[in-house]
C-alpha cells in the first residue's frame, strides 16, 4: 500500500478547531455539569436536578419558558407568511420595486438595541407617536410596553418589523429559482392568480420556506437583545424569556441556575428544530 501526503492536510483545520473547541464545545459540555450544581462566585456544590426542579416550580421561570415558545412561534409564523407575501409583491414588477426591497430589508442591518430604544419611545403610553396618532382618530392607545398582558406581543411586533426583511429577501431568492414556465403552463390550464399562488408558488418555494422557518425559529428561541432593550423582561416578569432569565440569574450570582436555563434553552431548540428538520427532509423525498 502506497501512502502519499495529501495536498489537503488536516492541520488546516487545526486553528479553527482549537478556537471552536475551547470557546464553544468545552463550555457547552461543561454546562451539563454546572447545571447540576449550586454555583456562585466562590464555590460549586453538586445538588443534582435541583436547578431544573426550580424551573418547574417557580412561576417566573415557567413563565419565561412559555414566553420563549410564544415569542419564537409567533415571530416565525408571521415572518414566514408576511415575508412570502412581501416577496411575491416585490417580484411582481411594481413601481419602485428596488427601492422598496431596500426599505424592507434595511432594519435587518441596524443595531437591535437602537431599534429597541426607538420603538420604546414610539410606544410610550402618553407621548409616543403611535398613541398620539391613535388618539387623533379618537382611539384610546393601550400601554404597549407597560401593560403586562401586552408587553410581550409589542416586542413580537417590533421583532417582526426588524426581521421580516430577511425572510422577504430569502423568499425573493427562492422565487427567482422558479421557472416562469410553470406560471405560463398554469395559465394555459386556466388557473387564477390565487390558485397559482397556492398551487405553484407555495409548493415550489419550499426550500426557502424551510430556511425561513428554521432560521427564524432558532433566532426567536435565542432572542435576547430586543426584549432587553425594550422591557428588561418587564413589567414584572411578564415579558421575560429564557435568554433574559439566564442573564438575570447570572447577574444575581446564581450561576448554576443560569446555566440550567441555558441547558433547557438548547434542549428546547434541539427538541423543536431536529424533528422539524427530519420532517422537512422527509417531505422533500415525497416530492
Amino acid at each position: 500500500m502506497v501512502t502519499q501526503k495529501s495536498p489537503y492536510p488536516y492541520w488546516f483545520v487545526l486553528p479553527a478547531a482549537i478556537v471552536f473547541t475551547v470557546l464553544f464545545l468545552v463550555p457547552t459540555f461543561a454546562s451539563f455539569w454546572f447545571s447540576l450544581t449550586r454555583w456562585d462566585l466562590f464555590s460549586t456544590q453538586f445538588i443534582g436536578l435541583e436547578n431544573y426542579a426550580q424551573f418547574l416550580r417557580e412561576p417566573f421561570l415557567i413563565q419565561g419558558t412559555i414566553n420563549t415558545l410564544i415569542f419564537a412561534f409567533a415571530t416565525s409564523a408571521t415572518k414566514t407568511v408576511i415575508g412570502l407575501l412581501l416577496a411575491v409583491l416585490l417580484t411582481s414588477g411594481i413601481w419602485a420595486q428596488g427601492f422598496l426591497r431596500t426599505v424592507v430589508f434595511f432594519p435587518v442591518l441596524v443595531s437591535t438595541i437602537g431599534i429597541g430604544i426607538t420603538f420604546a419611545a414610539l410606544m410610550h403610553p402618553t407621548n409616543g407617536v403611535i398613541n398620539v396618532a391613535l388618539a387623533s382618530i379618537g382611539l384610546p392607545g393601550p400601554g404597549w410596553l407597560t401593560d403586562p398582558v401586552l408587553a410581550l406581543y409589542s416586542v413580537i411586533i417590533v421583532d417582526l418589523w426588524k426581521g421580516v426583511g430577511l425572510a422577504t429577501l430569502i423568499y425573493i431568492a427562492g422565487l427567482a429559482t422558479i421557472s416562469q414556465d410553470y406560471y405560463e403552463a398554469a395559465r394555459m390550464d386556466g388557473a387564477t392568480r390565487t390558485q397559482m399562488f397556492f398551487r405553484v408558488t407555495v409548493p415550489l418555494v419550499r426550500p426557502a420556506t424551510v430556511t425561513v422557518v428554521t432560521l427564524s425559529l432558532i433566532g426567536g428561541l435565542r432572542s435576547f437583545d430586543l426584549i432587553w432593550a425594550m422591557t428588561r423582561g418587564g413589567p414584572g416578569f411578564s415579558s421575560d424569556v429564557l435568554a433574559s432569565v439566564i442573564y438575570k440569574q447570572y447577574q444575581a450570582g446564581f450561576y448554576g441556575l443560569s446555566t440550567a436555563g441555558n441547558v433547557i434553552l438548547f434542549a428546547l431548540i434541539g427538541l423543536i428544530i431536529l424533528p422539524l428538520t427530519v420532517w422537512f427532509n422527509r417531505r422533500e423525498v415525497d416530492l
Binding site: Y8, Y10, L23, P27, T28, F34, W39, I218, Y250, I269
Partner: peptide, 30 residues
C-alpha cells in the same frame, strides 16, 4: 476537497455551532 469519515463529525459541529446558544456562564469560566 478531502472526503473522510471525519467530515460527518465536522458537519455535526458546524450545525451545532449554527443552532446551539452558547453556554454563557461556563464560557466565562473558561
Amino acid at each position: 476537497r478531502r472526503p473522510s469519515p471525519w467530515n460527518k463529525v465536522i458537519y455535526g459541529f458546524v450545525l451545532a455551532g449554527l443552532m446551539i446558544p452558547p453556554a454563557v456562564v461556563p464560557t466565562i469560566w473558561v
